[in-house]
């Protein structure tokens, strides 16, 4: 074991897993430094959950190796399990138990005495603002509460590495920011977090490093700044008054700024990445594009300028839309 490896919470090389003909994970390399938050960003079916399940010792890799704090997930699973905690994509709480019973049960499994497990459960219920719902069955909790309960169960004993599989998918904005706060606190306490997400803004808000995956491979990784500059500082979306002018508008955009122009499912809409390195230049380009369209008599009803969406990051990285139905348009 080299010193460098010891600083890594996760070190995966060529990790692969196939289900029948489908190569769910097709050679993933991943390094996660201890104490950081890494986001694995990708669309549905990209291989995010399969990757997490291999790292959490629930699936055996077909090929490749993965070390969690230096312990091989395939050959030293018990050592890995002592250091990790898993919050699955579908809430990993027992739906037929109350919030409190769920926490007490996990506490007992971790080795707390019955009394200590109850105390710990009550402390966590208060800390996660779940005390009012302590006696409710998990099925009767709102999506946000269930997620918080799920995360609370994952940190009854502080894990060295916490897996969060799509922790905010399906949550309303308020619940989502509550989950984000919890994750930040957990990391501040020294836990390394690996989270998967479909949302660039989530990765942006939380992660030190982002790995973008598609078709079971890492297609880009780095800090958010590195990733964004690779994609372009910003993007624009516009909607035309007359859909028949879309081809002309596309030609204009392509000529004046970038090859990264894509048609949307909406027949009147276009999207484009701005290639400029800095924000001022990006803003300038966006204004020019709008001017140019106006001069050519192409009326725009909607115009947004902002951070690239996941779809645009994907398009920039792969030349392929995340939504297959849009490719054929």
């Amino acid at each position: 074991m080299t010193t460098r490896n010891a600083d890594l919470a996760v070190r995966a090389r060529g990790l692969a897993k196939a289900f029948g003909e489908t190569r769910a994970v097709d050679g993933i390399d991943l390094d996660i430094p201890t104490g950081s938050i890494c986001a694995v960003l990708g669309p549905n079916g990209a291989g995010k959950t399969t990757t997490i399940r291999m790292l959490a010792t629930l699936l055996r890799p077909d090929a490749g190796t993965a070390l969690v704090f230096g312990h091989d997930v395939a050959h030293d699973a018990p050592a890995v399990r002592r250091r990790i905690s898993l919050t699955g994509q579908f809430a990993s709480v027992d739906e037929d138990l109350t919030a409190r019973e769920n926490l007490v049960m996990i506490g007992r499994l971790h080795g707390y005495s019955p009394a200590a497990a109850k105390t710990r459960a009550d402390d966590l219920l208060v800390g996660f603002e779940l005390d009012a719902a302590a006696g409710r069955l998990a099925t009767q909790l709102s999506g946000g509460m269930r997620r918080r309960l799920d995360i609370a169960a994952s940190i009854i004993v502080r894990p060295e590495l916490l897996f969060l599989d799509e922790p905010t998918t399906g949550l309303d904005p308020r619940s989502r920011s509550q989950v984000w706060d919890v994750v930040r606190h957990i990391v501040a306490n020294g836990t390394t977090v690996l989270l998967t997400t479909q949302y660039l803004d989530e990765a942006d808000q939380l992660a030190d490093r982002i790995a973008v995956i598609n078709h079971g491979r890492v297609i880009a990784s780095g800090t958010r700044e590195e990733l964004k500059s690779a994609v372009g500082a910003g993007g624009i979306r516009l909607r035309l008054a007359d859909p028949s002018q879309r081809d002309r508008a596309e030609a204009t955009l392509t000529a004046s700024l970038t090859p990264h122009v894509m048609k949307d499912g909406d027949p009147a809409a276009l999207r484009a990445q701005l290639p400029a390195e800095d924000l001022a230049a990006s803003t300038n380009l966006a204004v020019q594009v709008l001017n140019q369209l106006a001069q050519e008599g192409i009326a725009v009803t909607d115009f947004t300028y902002g951070q690239p969406s996941l779809d645009e990051v994907f398009f920039a990285l792969t030349g392929e839309s995340t939504d297959r139905s849009e490719v054929s348009v």
């Binding site: 007992r108 971790h110 080795g111 208060v126 940190i155 009854i156 502080r158 919890v182």
Partner: peptide, 30 residues
């Protein structure tokens, strides 16, 4: 959030204790 920093038990529940915890889970479900 102080709840994050609780003292952890020395070791996880052994086979008997873990099995009984899961048995209790079954009874709670009933």
């Amino acid at each position: 959030m102080t709840v994050l920093d609780a003292e952890a038990p020395a070791r996880p529940a052994g086979p008997v204790s873990a099995s009984l915890t899961y048995a209790r889970r079954s009874l709670l479900k009933i």
